[in-house]
Amino acid sequence: MKALLKRAGLQGRSVVAAVPYLWLLLFFLIPFVIVLKISFSSSLIAMPPYEPLLHWTGEKVLQIKLNLGNFAFLVEDNLYWKAYLNSIWVASVSTFFCLLLGYPIAYAIARSNPSARNILMLLIVLPFWTSFLLRVYAWIGILKNNGLLNNFLIWIGAIDQPIQMLQTDFAVYVGIVYSYLPFMILPLYANLEKMDLTLLEAAADLGCKPWQGFLKVTLPLSLPGVRAGCLLVFIPAVGEFVIPSLLGDPGMLMIGKVLWTEFFNNRDWPVASAVAIVLLLFLVIPMMYFQRAQDAEAGGVHR
């Protein structure tokens, strides 16, 4: 097929490839170059609010002014370090709980009878089709002091004073786990569902107890699904903005929020760019890992 297309119309083929390619280069790759560039310039009160990097001086000299100050600023001010580390911590904890919750659900669905599976999976992705923002908003009503959960706990007598749940780290964890759970379940389910169940029968036949069969057969075989699910939750959670700003403590340091504040409130575009570049550096390794996993999944297609 490929050799064919090569012959059949190199031109047609190049056009087909060029359109999405150029689009992504222009609107996805080049923007990062610009972010990198602006992260080296200094802030100005103007529009756009930064100084150009290249400068033609009168004597036909091209002057390049690299301002490393933004990055120095990120290193010196430990607010940024704390925000980065805290974001990674929050994302890790949330990913862990997503896995803890998502694995049994994916497993239970994958082992249900085939006619029920599709309906159950539909129910898992269904919330995803309604607004993410509104689903996070719903948790405000549940977690606040006179909210559903506190009222319920008081009603059953577990507590007699409302507990502060909204605007805590706990609320952020709940929000992230809740919002990203389908992204954990989907790859896990896809993996568990295609597993050959006779492997478990073989293991049982060879003397494995059911829990041993799970630990020695099911779990190792599902690791690619675990990996994909964890990356799908972890990477976007690190830069999450909406959940911590709606559910978290206003002073909570999350890097997505910091970037947003630098950009919208302080109007310091160069620092916001530097924050983005450093965040990207943190995420580049997990992202490449994810890309490789995706490619492996799509692989084996080509002759």
Partner: peptide, 25 residues
């Protein structure tokens, strides 16, 4: 190309948003 098509799936939106704005400007 395959990197460019999968990256937006997981890229934190604050980064994508900021970079697109800077491109437009």
């Amino acid at each position: 190309l395959s990197g460019l098509t999968t990256a937006p799936l997981v890229m934190p939106e604050v980064i994508t948003g900021l970079s697109l704005l800077l491109l437009f400007v």
